[in-house]
Design a protein around this nucleic acid. Structure first.
Length: 152
DNA sequence: GCCAACGTTGGC
DNA sequence: GCCAACGTTGGC
């Protein structure tokens, strides 16, 4: 099956594209939203990811990544000391899942949300009308439009 | 199963 | 730091 495309948000103060460039591969843990979780469960190895910086000034797409491991239980849900601990989850009965993503590249130019909002080709992206969804599907056309916008 | 209250996200 | 939007929880 052809690779699908996604947008994944992170707060750069917590984990930025530079962090991913340094670590190469990161487990995308801490997602505690059912809709976002379900999208992660749909991901396949090789799927493309727009790496989005949120809650920062300015917010926007910072780079590209790809899925290298499909959904598996997020270990932080079992850890009472973790901010992401979920007392309703138990090993063998996981509720939350994560994927692993690998750094692909930083975009040659950061694309601020404000600029993306004005681009007709991507006007249907959930980013604009479901702002709280931290993992969201992107069409190949939208993905290509964003990469093209950033330049070579 | 509805919906009010509450909590969180994320842009500004 | 504020607050609108919206997802989740829990009482009924």
């Amino acid at each position: 099956m052809a690779a699908r495309c996604w947008l994944m948000k992170t707060e750069p103060d917590t984990f930025s594209i530079e962090d991913l460039a340094r670590k190469k591969i990161e487990g995308w843990n801490g997602v505690r939203n059912y809709s976002a979780r379900n999208f992660m469960k749909d991901m396949s190895v090789g799927d493309k990811v727009l790496f989005y910086h949120s809650s920062t000034e300015p917010p926007g797409v910072a780079g590209l990544a790809e899925v290298v491991k499909t959904a598996y239980p997020d270990p932080t849900q079992f850890d009472p000391k973790s901010d992401y601990h979920d007392p309703k989850a138990a090993p063998g009965k996981p509720i939350w899942f994560q994927v692993d993503v690998r750094f692909f590249k930083k975009l040659p130019r950061f694309l601020p949300l404000d600029e993306l909002r004005g681009v007709p080709a991507i006007a249907d992206m959930p980013l604009f009308h479901r702002s709280r969804l931290s993992v969201q599907p992107v069409t190949p056309e939208q993905y290509a439009a964003i990469v093209a916008l950033a330049g070579k």
